[in-house]
Computed example of a mutant assay.
Amino acid sequence: MKFCTFRQKDVEQVGIVSSDYQAVYALKELNITINKMEELIENYTALKEEILINRDQLTPIPLDQVELLAPIPHPKHDVLCVGLNYQLHALESAKFAGREYQKPEHPVYFSKRVNQAVGPNGRIPAHANITEKLDYEVELAVIMGKTCSKLAPEEVFDAIFGYTIANDVSARDIQMAYGQYMFGKGLDGFAPMGPWIATKDEFPEPPHLNLKTYVNGELRQDSNTSDLIFDLPYMISELSQGMTLETGDILMTGTPAGVGMGFIPPRFLKVGDEVICEVEGIGQLRNTVG
């Protein structure tokens, strides 16, 4: 199933996405007291059967009559991220930074501050007062399904709720100037996510999914999660050895080659650009720079 967070008549709700992606069904029709996505994730095991049995009886609300929000608009914690996790992207990043490429021995972890995640069709702030090198990064984002620690790699998929699409928007000039990722990737509006969460049972383990990014209709990124240097069991197990992962926590898993800084000359985003991030089996996340 696919679950979304949407706003209708100034009321935020959690809903089920129809199989043709043309409508949503409000969970409140089932008399389920779920006000936000984290509550659904927390109680999903107990509610899943009831939702499956009754969802076809719910009243469809056409998608064009609601505003889709990021599935988790206000993450409880900063989003966990991993950088340089596709080999060709690691290579283009090294070239941009003027250094020799070396395959990483360990994942490059960092956190991304997200006061509010930008939803589908939302605006990516240009922050033109502090950056001239605005970039895009399509990523598969993992949504944790339960609180856990010290997971073995073979236990990781049992702890996942599902997946969504994320765009790890980055200010490359800030990132390079400060020599770390926090500031250049943590500006307001730099975490578009959505359009919904697809539950893990829709995918194999591990999920081998095509990822693409289009800028103004031009294909820029085109790869597959099978090319990850460090896979989901490795990363999530490793992180959990020393930090507790909680229900609703989000992990962005890295981006493939084709980001703006990888072109010669670089092709950074500008005001008015439309960015579409696509992940197979989930859908498209469409945003405009403004």
Rank of each mutant, 00 (worst) to 15 (best):
A152N: 14
I174F: 11
D201K: 10
S170P: 08
M193G: 01
M193Q: 14
G179Y: 12
P206A: 05
M193C: 11
S223W: 03
D188C: 00
G162C: 09
L140P: 07
G186M: 07
F161D: 02
F203E: 04
Y178E: 15
T213D: 08
S226E: 15
E154W: 02
M144P: 07
G145M: 07
N224I: 08
L134Q: 01
F203R: 06
K150G: 04
I160W: 08
K150D: 11
P207M: 10
G184W: 07
L219M: 10
Y181A: 13
E154P: 00
K185I: 04
F161N: 07
P195S: 05
L209Y: 13
I124K: 12
E202Y: 13
P206C: 10
A166D: 00
L219H: 02
L209T: 05
Y178H: 14
I165A: 05
I160N: 05
D173R: 06
P233E: 03
V138D: 03
A177G: 11
I160A: 03
P192Q: 07
L219N: 01
K146D: 04
R220P: 00
A159P: 06
A141C: 15
F190A: 06
R220C: 04
K200E: 04
G186I: 03
A177T: 04
S149E: 15
I130M: 09
S237P: 08
L228E: 06
R220F: 05
L187G: 03
A128L: 12
R123P: 00
I236D: 06
Y163I: 01
D201M: 04
L211A: 10
